[in-house]
Design a protein around this nucleic acid. Sequence first.
RNA 1: GGCUCCAUCAUCUAAUGGUUAGGAUUCAAGGUUUUCAUCCUUGCCAUAGGGGUUCGAAUCCCCUUGGAGUCACCA
Length: 506
Amino acid sequence: MLYYLFFTNTGFNARISSIKLMGPLKILDISEVPSQRSSMVVTRFAPSPTGYLHIGGLRTALFSYLWARRNNGKFVLRIEDTDQSRNNEAAAKAIVDAFEWVGLEHDDIITYQSQRGEIYARYIRQLLDEDKAYYCYMSKEELTALREEQTANKERPRYDGRYRDFTGTPPEGIEPVVRIKTPTEGTITVNDSIKGEVVFNVDDILDDFIIARSDGSPTYNFVVAIDDALMGINEVIRGDDHFSNTPKQLVVYEALGFDVPKFHHVPMIHNHDGKKLSKRDGATDVMAYKEMGYLPEALLNFLVRLGWSNGDQEIFSAEEMRTLFDPANINKSASIYNTDKLDWLNAHYIKNSDNAKLVGLLEAHGILIDGHDKKEILLDEVKERAKTISEMAALIKEILETPGIYDEKGMKKAFKGEAVNVLNTFAAKLNETKALHLPSDYHDVMAKVVEEMGIGFGKIGMPLRMALMGKLSGPGLDTVMSVIGLEETLLRINKVIERDLQNSAE
RNA sequence: GGCUCCAUCAUCUAAUGGUUAGGAUUCAAGGUUUUCAUCCUUGCCAUAGGGGUUCGAAUCCCCUUGGAGUCACCA
């Protein structure tokens, strides 16, 4: 009953001229058939339920979404679950969750092919009645045998049409499949905005393909065409891998008298081996990027530039994408999935995020600093040096926790000569100075020690860095001291001095 | 193998017959920084090959080579 919800009130008018109502068995519900293409752009994303949203899927979904939004149209979601799998709801949820995370919104309710069996059955019935399709009683064994013979003769494996005009008595014990009558000669032209007009020779690619299996269930190329037509999809943006199926779908459009949508076949995303990106290529689950600490705006920005461009522009806000995206600027060649640029974009978006937002994102990575009185100073320091939120979380932890281990090489390098003396002097100076709050307060004390002892900044920098961070690299020392406070600073200094004495004693 | 598509720096791409072939990322060097990172500056790196057409070709045509997709009672 879902499908009725879909097509009521959507403004589709009857289109009787090209659909002949015939046969006693069915009455076509003409209210479902879209008529003149409405001027509104309607795009769709039609994944099969694999349990998660694939990174390549997200890109085509993004393109479809952007194009619909740019045209004030609709972007709808359809789950292609004609076959197996009972956890379609869960799969749909995974997709919607991922959409939600990146901020893509689909319109209308979600369509499930598994719930539309009646519709497909009616159209199969219709084609049979109109003699545009027929039952084929060939067994799987016979089919295999035929194919083997054809292959042996170096012919293209194809159904030979033996039941096309069959009028005799069907063989016993065979549940027939339904095949559609395809043209036997001539050409089919696919008009694609990206590939141009591609002409297929019917003899090279077609045979009477199956539209209903022996158990009555419809097959992919049949249902896509029906669903796209009934859902009013007038612009199909999908992966390149569907391109060679398109002629078959065109046959279905033709047989049913549906308007053909505009096609945009987007080139694939390849992995490092130059092959189609698949599950085996590591992080292809969109939600994995959330866990790794990527921001959705970075991921979208990265994906929108994969196969599409707008001159030299690299940075796109969501708003800019929605106003600038145009499938006319989609590249013709496949692109390789390389996340170097994603890291750069992510760092860029982290640097430009406000701290309140970062506080929230860090919570998911186990860092609770909302109550910290120096959180602004801390975040300002740390967001300049993290490529991901998880890196940021790790860095904050390093700052906030007293070092447990000390880099040995660093210790040797930092604690030559007067280091302990310098640290003691510095600690004493800190103790006698009042009102230490800001990084600049601590910096002033360091400057004073350097000046009074007549040494370079490095002489205090290195041992102090070992004291505070346990290693010789990291964030600004004055900032660290400001964030952890005087007490913790003194504690860390004493700890590293003890540590050094132990080492020297050994 | 048949059919179809594709081919500019390592990677993402710009240049729709006239540019020293541009930008970004990566990488390298320098500057900034007490260190690291950020940031700034500079540098390295490409029209797959061969033929045409044209005054002029990355761009149009042909061939070669390479790559990809697809050929199911999967989607």
